[in-house]
C-alpha cells in the first residue's frame, strides 16, 4: 500500500504539472492581457511598455514559464499583478476554507439525503415512495444550481427570513453563524450531486438484491435491515463510489457558480475575477490548487475501494 501511495503521489505531481502547463499557455493564447485589463487601452505606448517590463511580460514565454515554475517549486506562487499585489498564496488561503466549507457541507447534505433516498427507492421499488425519489432526482438533475440557489434565497432568506441570503462568516466566529450562512448555498451545491448518488444507489441496490448471496442471506433468516445494510449496501456502494468520485468534480464546479450567487468570496470567485482581469499568477495558482483537490479526491476514491471490497488490493 505504501509503495502504491508513493507511486500515486508521483503521478499526482505529473498531473498537476501538466494542468499547470496547459493553463499557463492557454492563458497567454486567450485574447487580451493584464495590461489591457488594467489600462483599458488608455495608456500610451511607453506606459504600456514600462508596465509590461515591470510585470516580466516582455520576456519570451518560455522564460516566463521557467521562471514561474522555479518559484512554484520553492513554494512561491508569486504575487497578484492586479491591485494590491497581494501574494497569490495569501489570496488562496483566504478563499479556500470558504469553498471547502461550501463543498464539504454540500457533500454531507447530499449524502444525508441521497443514501436513505436511494435505499428506500430500491427496497420499495415501484411504490409511491420510489416514484417520489425518482421525481426528485430527476428534478435535481435538471435544475441549474444557480437558479435553485436564487430560488432558495427568495424563499428562505427574502420571504421567510429564516437564513441570511449572502456572505460568509468564518467558523472561528461561531458554529451557527458559519453554518447559517452556508446552509442555502450548500443545498444548492449538493442537489445535483445527491440526485446522481441517489439514482446510482437505487440501481446498484436493485442489481445487488438480485444476486445469489442476498437470497442466501434471506434464507439464513437474517432481519431485513441486516440483509439490506450489511449484505447489500456495501456491494451496491462499489459502483457508487466510482460515480461519486467523478461527481465530486461537479460538486466543485457547482460551488464556483453558487459562490457568485451567494456572494461568497471563495476559490470560484477568485478564479473568475482573476480570469476576467487576466491576473496570470492568481489564475495559475488557483488552478494548481483546484487540480490538487481533484487528484486528492481521486486518490481517496481508490483507497475507499480497498476498504469496502476485500478483493481490491494494490500491489501485494
Amino acid at each position: 500500500m505504501t509503495r502504491y501511495l508513493i507511486r500515486r503521489a508521483i503521478g499526482a505531481v505529473i498531473v498537476m504539472w501538466a494542468v499547470a502547463t496547459l493553463v499557463f499557455f492557454m492563458l497567454r493564447i486567450v485574447p487580451g492581457d493584464p495590461i489591457g485589463a488594467m489600462l483599458f487601452d488608455a495608456g500610451d505606448a511607453a506606459a504600456v511598455e514600462a508596465l509590461r517590463h515591470k510585470l516580466g511580460l516582455d520576456a519570451p514565454i518560455y522564460v516566463q514559464y521557467v521562471k514561474w515554475f522555479w518559484l512554484v517549486f520553492q513554494g512561491d506562487l508569486g504575487n497578484s499583478i492586479y491591485g494590491s499585489n497581494m501574494p497569490v498564496s495569501k489570496a488562496i488561503i483566504e478563499a479556500l476554507p470558504r469553498t471547502l466549507s461550501l463543498a464539504g457541507l454540500g457533500f454531507i447534505i447530499a449524502l444525508v439525503i441521497a443514501v436513505p433516498a436511494g435505499l428506500i427507492a430500491a427496497t420499495r421499488r415501484n411504490t409511491m415512495l420510489d416514484n417520489v425519489v425518482s421525481f426528485w432526482a430527476f428534478l435535481g438533475l435538471s435544475m441549474p444550481e444557480f437558479w435553485f440557489g436564487i430560488l432558495l434565497i427568495i424563499v428562505f432568506a427574502a420571504g421567510l427570513k429564516w437564513l441570511p441570503a449572502i456572505g460568509y462568516v468564518p467558523l472561528s466566529d461561531g458554529f451557527w453563524p458559519w453554518v447559517s450562512h452556508l446552509i442555502l448555498p450548500a443545498i444548492a451545491v449538493g442537489t445535483t450531486f445527491s440526485a446522481i448518488i441517489a439514482r446510482n444507489i437505487r440501481s446498484g441496490m436493485l442489481e445487488v438484491l438480485k444476486t445469489d448471496y442476498i437470497r442466501v442471506a434471506r434464507a439464513k433468516g437474517l432481519t431485513t435491515s441486516a440483509v439490506i445494510l450489511r449484505h447489500a449496501f456495501p456491494n451496491a456502494l462499489i459502483p457508487v463510489i466510482t460515480v461519486a468520485g467523478i461527481a465530486f468534480a461537479l460538486l466543485m464546479a457547482n460551488a464556483v457558480v453558487v459562490e457568485n450567487v451567494f456572494s461568497i468570496k471563495g476559490l470560484g470567485r477568485l478564479l473568475i475575477n482573476s480570469i476576467l482581469n487576466r491576473d496570470y499568477p492568481t489564475v495559475q495558482g488557483a488552478v494548481l490548487v483546484v487540480s490538487a483537490i481533484f487528484v486528492l479526491s481521486n486518490l481517496v476514491v481508490d483507497v475507499l475501494y480497498t476498504m469496502i471490497d476485500p478483493r481490491i488490493r494494490y500491489d501485494k
Partner: peptide, 30 residues
C-alpha cells in the same frame, strides 16, 4: 424458521457467498 430450523444449501457456491464479508462474519451471523 429460516436458517434456524431449516438450513439451505444453494447451487452456486461461487456466487452464494457475499464477496465483501469475511467467511467468519457470514458463518457467525445466523
Amino acid at each position: 424458521v429460516r436458517g434456524h430450523r431449516i438450513g439451505m444449501v444453494f447451487q452456486e457456491p461461487m456466487t452464494s457467498l457475499n464477496p465483501v464479508l469475511s467467511i467468519g462474519r457470514q458463518l457467525t451471523e445466523a
